[in-house]
Computed example of a mutant assay.
Amino acid sequence: MGAGILGAMTRHRIFGMSFARIYPLYVAKVERKGHGQAEVDQVIEWLTGYDDAGLARVIADGTDLETFFAEAPALNENAPLITGVICGMRVEEIDDPLMQRIRWMDKLVDEVARGKKMSSILRGS
C-alpha cells in the first residue's frame, strides 16, 4: 500500500500546480531585480519550445505543470547543460524527469533574476 522506500508512487503536489500560478511569480522575481517578462518568456520558450501564443494558451487554460511539460513542443536538447542548485537540490542530480524539468525552469528564471548574460543562460545557443 505504501509508496516504498524511494517514494516511487509519490506524486509531488507541484506537478498539479497550474503554470498560470507560478508564471506571475517568475515575472515578479525578475522584475524585483530590474529584468522583465520578455526575458522570462525567452528562457521558458527556449526550454520548452512554446511560443508566445502557446504560453498565453497554457496560462489561459490553467494547464498544470505535468501537462505543460508533457505537451511542450520541443524540450531543448541543451537543457541537460543546466546545472547548479535550486531549492537546495542539484538540478543535474534530480531523478524524476518532470521534477528535473520544473527545476530547470526555476534555475533559468533564477539566472535571469541574477542578471546572468542571456547567451550563458541559454547555454550558448
Rank of each mutant, 00 (worst) to 15 (best):
T48P: 01
D61M: 10
M1I: 10
G62N: 08
Q37R: 15
R32C: 03
G34V: 07
K116L: 15
P24H: 02
V109W: 01
N76V: 07
D96H: 13
G16A: 12
A28Y: 03
D106Y: 10
I94Q: 12
C87E: 15
T10K: 10
W104E: 11
N76R: 09
A53G: 04
G49P: 02
T48D: 05
A70H: 06
R13W: 02
I121A: 03
I5G: 09
W104R: 13
I86T: 15
G88I: 14
P73D: 04
T67V: 12
V58R: 06
L47V: 06
E66A: 14
I14A: 06
I82M: 07
R11Y: 02
L108P: 05
K33W: 04
R21E: 13
M9V: 07
Q100C: 10
Q37T: 08
Y50L: 04
Q100A: 12
H12V: 03
I102V: 13
A53Y: 00
A72S: 12
I22E: 07
M9P: 00
S119M: 11
D64M: 06
E39F: 00
G88Q: 13
M105T: 08
D106P: 05
K33D: 09
N76G: 02
G7V: 11
S120T: 15
I121S: 04
W46S: 04
Y23G: 04
V30P: 00
A60C: 05
D41Y: 01
L75A: 08
V109E: 03
K117W: 08
E77D: 13
R57F: 06
S120Y: 09
A70E: 11
E71K: 13
R90E: 15
L65W: 01
Q100R: 15
R21N: 09
P73W: 02
E31I: 00
G34Q: 06
M17H: 03
P24C: 12
D41K: 10
D52V: 10
R57H: 08
L25K: 14
V109P: 04
F68C: 08
I121L: 05
M1A: 14
Q100D: 09
E39V: 03
I102F: 08
G88E: 14
G124L: 07
E77A: 13
E93V: 09
R101D: 12
Q42D: 06
Y26E: 01
A56V: 01
R11E: 09
A8I: 11
F69A: 01
R101G: 01
R123P: 02
I102D: 07
K107R: 15
L81G: 04
A38N: 11
E77I: 11
F19Y: 11
T10W: 02
A20S: 14
T83N: 12
D64N: 14
V85I: 15
D51Q: 05
I5S: 14
